[in-house]
């Protein structure tokens, strides 16, 4: 592995978080470099979503540090972290269903000025033509895949430098999952750094550059995705390899 000397955008150091007495994950170390796509794979309950909740400021860490672009952010409130350029696409999409698509996007650009918001809205509609045609419809009328697109589009409206994607494949048909991951790869080509959390290890390892494997609150493995894909332990536990 060559990283370390490259410019790091996100640095999670010895991070421990929990809910009251229960520890969600402990002493987690993760780094993401500018322009990189990093995946965290692991089973349900491994602590992946709790990690994202901590990075976004929704959960407070018990120990450890989170640095974004060299600045410590683990004591900042969630709304300031968004302003610094971290955007989170939540698991289950969490779009505002009884609100129009356009209004959803406007909320995504909450801390930006009106001009920037409107010009970005047009850029978004070019990227997602499906959303343009239905901009004044309620978001709840979209299909699952379209809702996922809207969730990503909404997250992009804040002009993030780092986007956190939580289970973007969840509950979607395989073909739609391909579409979504096509979009995710395009985002990386556009220079957005991506931290991806997935239970669907096979697609995550195919798309990302580097990955961490998380089990019961700890990072148990890390490496380039091409190496992890051929690792027998990963194959057996996450890729359905034969015994």
């Amino acid at each position: 592995m060559e990283p370390r000397n490259k410019q790091q955008l996100l640095n999670v150091e010895e991070l421990t978080t929990g809910y009251a007495e229960i520890v969600a994950f402990r002493e987690v170390n993760i780094s993401v470099q500018h322009g990189e796509m990093v995946a965290i794979i692991g089973a349900n309950g491994a602590g992946k979503t709790s990690l994202l909740r901590t990075i976004t400021g929704v959960l407070r860490p018990k120990k450890g540090k989170i640095k974004f672009d060299g600045r410590e952010i683990h004591n900042l409130p969630a709304y300031q972290i968004v302003q610094m350029g971290i955007s989170w696409v939540q698991e289950g999409r969490a779009i505002f269903k009884r609100v129009t698509i356009e209004e959803n996007l406007k909320v995504g650009a909450y801390h930006r000025d009106k001009k920037g918001m409107l010009s970005d809205m047009e850029i978004t509609f070019e990227r997602f033509p499906i959303l343009k045609n239905r901009r004044s419809q309620l978001a709840g009328t979209l299909s699952g895949g379209e809702q996922q697109m809207l969730a990503i589009a909404r997250a992009l409206m804040s002009r993030p430098r780092l986007i956190l994607l939580d289970e973007p494949s969840l509950g979607l048909a395989p073909l739609i999952v391909q579409d979504i991951y096509g979009i995710v790869s395009d985002l990386q080509s556009d220079g957005i750094t991506i931290l991806l959390v997935e239970q669907n290890a096979s697609i995550a390892l195919k798309t990302a550059d580097r990955a961490y494997v998380m089990e019961t609150g700890r990072i148990v493995m890390e490496g380039m995705t091409r190496d992890l894909m051929t690792d027998p332990r990963v194959q057996e536990a996450y890729l359905g390899g034969q015994r």
Partner: peptide, 18 residues
């Protein structure tokens, strides 16, 4: 819009920067 999104989903509103 902030109020409306809080009514819809408070956590989502919070991580949108509200």
């Amino acid at each position: 819009r902030a109020f409306e999104s809080m009514r819809e989903d408070e956590l989502a509103a919070e991580v949108m920067g509200i």
